[in-house]
């Protein structure tokens, strides 16, 4: 599982906004250029970005295993054809290059995830998107992070209780609707208590945020982000 890990790397010292900009620029140029030459350059860059956040390649690939299966199957499926020549190599190569760039994009985003705490991401979103939409997004993201483990354990409790009552022997619809009803009822009970607590604490559209500041290392990162984004057009 990919999560934030406290560390002292270069990526950890960057402002979250410049890291987001680098990711968007990288994705834009990788999606625009599925050519072998561009992909070699982008692979080297990916290596540097992973090193800057000291991400373990092996652990990241394990975390993305489901995506990897699709990325491996796509070129094979694209190459298979009914009738001679049975395997269409150019089509498979095109699809393979396309799949490889997706892998690079996933790896770069792993570097962001490892090096950025949630509250920094939240502050970045709220400072970039002004007004109420930014508030809703920022607060909402923080709540999702806070309640994710709680609701995961709710779901685990529900499934264990079902298993104890031989619920696993029932049909798929029955099981899905039981998990759905109980899961959502519990979540909404929590939501109603949460909304009361939020109102008791004067939940407002304009609270005070933690400070964010660009430091000297952010400027090269921003230049890189802009360069990558512009390179998508060439």
């Amino acid at each position: 599982m990919l999560t934030f890990e406290p560390d002292e790397t270069l990526a950890h010292r960057l402002d979250p906004r410049s890291k987001l900009a680098v990711q968007i620029g990288f994705a834009a140029t990788a999606l625009a250029h599925p050519t072998p030459r561009a992909l070699i350059v982008l692979s080297v860059l990916t290596g540097l970005l992973l090193a800057a956040a000291s991400v373990s390649l092996r652990r990241t690939l394990v975390a993305y295993r489901f995506a990897l299966i699709v990325l491996v199957l796509a070129p094979i499926l694209s190459g298979l054809s009914l009738g001679t020549p049975w395997f269409d190599r150019p089509a498979a190569v095109t699809s393979g290059l396309a799949s490889y760039r997706v892998l690079l994009i996933l790896l770069v985003s792993a570097a962001y995830v490892r090096s950025t705490p949630v509250r920094a991401s939240r502050a970045a979103i709220q400072r970039t998107i002004p007004g109420k939409p930014g508030q809703v997004l920022g607060t909402g993201i923080a709540l999702v992070f806070r309640f994710l483990p709680v609701l995961q354990s709710d779901l685990r409790t529900i499934r264990e209780a079902m298993a104890a009552r031989l619920g696993t022997e029932r049909g798929a619809i029955d099981r899905a609707s039981t998990i759905g009803t109980l899961g959502i009822t519990r979540a909404f009970n929590r939501a109603d208590r949460l909304s009361l607590a939020l109102q008791a604490r004067c939940f407002a559209w304009n609270p005070t945020l933690p400070p964010l500041e660009f430091s000297r290392v952010d400027y090269p990162a921003l230049v890189l982000a802009i360069g990558l984004a512009l390179s998508a057009f060439y």
Binding site: G140, G183, D192
Partner: peptide, 14 residues
């Protein structure tokens, strides 16, 4: 809003 956020977390939990 609280329901929307909790439902988002529930979708994530599933």
């Amino acid at each position: 809003f609280a329901r929307a956020a909790l439902l988002a977390a529930l979708i994530g939990a599933t």
